[in-house]
Computed example of a mutant assay.
Amino acid sequence: MTTIASSTAHEELDARRRRVSPTSSRGWAFVGAAAGIAGVVGIQASLQIDAVYNKKYAGDADLILDRLGDYVPQLLILHFAMTGAAIMLLIFAAGLRRRLRAQAPAGSLLPDVAAGGLLLTAVATLMGAGFTTEIVFALTDDTVAIDPEFAAVVGHWIGTIPWLWVGAGLTGVAVAVGALRHAAAPRWLGWVGAVFGGITLLVGLSPLQYMAGFTGPVLILVLGLGFAFGDRRQRAGS
């Protein structure tokens, strides 16, 4: 009986050691950093497209349509950046969930909440690029007819939907709780998640929800880099 108990204790100790050791693969974290960069690029492209926000064109659908024709490069950048971010956010979500589950308390909801925030953001970024191809083809092909009113809708769409990064704020807060309360991630990343995630979540919940597009991508970029490099230093020092 003593031998069996000793063997069981050793097995539990080995399992615990494996549980608290970060996984060796960091590809998902680099993908997360790339998703943050793509988000920054997409937001900057959206900022430049002023067809519906410039007072010279506001309220005149025909002028808005003509103005959008000047922004085909920005529309294409927005398309590639946001659709790319959507795909990379899914990969980052899967990796982050696995990473937090390795050290969070058994049965904790934090890994699922953190991943869910990224999934929500991925949907918003994908939807934000939903009209870009149709409007670009219409603007570059004279044989394609387009309603000016639709162009006005597109102008508002690309100026709002890609900015809905509130889910990233939820992810940041979940990482903060995991890091600061349960040591499930480097402590400095917990403070980054608390500050940037908290700001992103608060503005995303407020009538200023589009402001989340400024802080959300930066948060994801820092989290990606933090898990890519911070865990290595933490593991080397342990």
Rank of each mutant, 00 (worst) to 15 (best):
F214R: 09
D141W: 01
L109S: 10
N54Y: 01
G204H: 05
P217V: 08
T132F: 00
A38W: 02
W163M: 15
P186N: 11
R99P: 00
L170S: 10
L119A: 14
D60A: 12
E149T: 10
P73Y: 15
S46F: 03
V177K: 01
G230H: 01
G39A: 14
R98G: 13
A38S: 14
P105A: 07
D14M: 08
S25A: 13
M211P: 00
G95E: 06
L75M: 14
L189H: 00
H182A: 11
V123R: 01
L75A: 01
L225S: 11
A58D: 08
Y210P: 01
A236G: 03
I64L: 09
W163T: 04
F229S: 07
Q103Y: 02
I161S: 10
G59W: 08
V218N: 10
G216A: 08
K56M: 12
Q234L: 14
Q209T: 12
S46V: 06
R26Q: 07
D66G: 03
I49T: 09
S206E: 10
M1S: 14
E134R: 13
T8F: 10
S7E: 13
T215W: 08
G193W: 10
G213I: 06
L63E: 13
S238W: 02
L126I: 00
M127Q: 03
G204C: 01
A174P: 10
T200G: 04
A86R: 07
W163H: 15
A106C: 00
F229E: 04
G130W: 00
G169N: 11
L75E: 03
G39Y: 12
P186F: 13
H79L: 14
F92V: 02
L75Q: 05
D231V: 10
F196S: 11
G190M: 07
H79N: 11
I87Y: 10
A29I: 08
W188I: 06
L118C: 14
P186K: 12
V40D: 00
D70L: 08
P207R: 12
I146G: 00
A174D: 07
G59T: 11
V41Q: 03
L78W: 04
V203W: 02
P22D: 07
D66V: 04
D142R: 14
H10N: 12
A122C: 05
R18H: 08
G224Y: 04
I91S: 07
Q74W: 13
A122I: 02
T140N: 01
N54P: 00
F137K: 14
L78Y: 01
V136Q: 05
A9V: 03
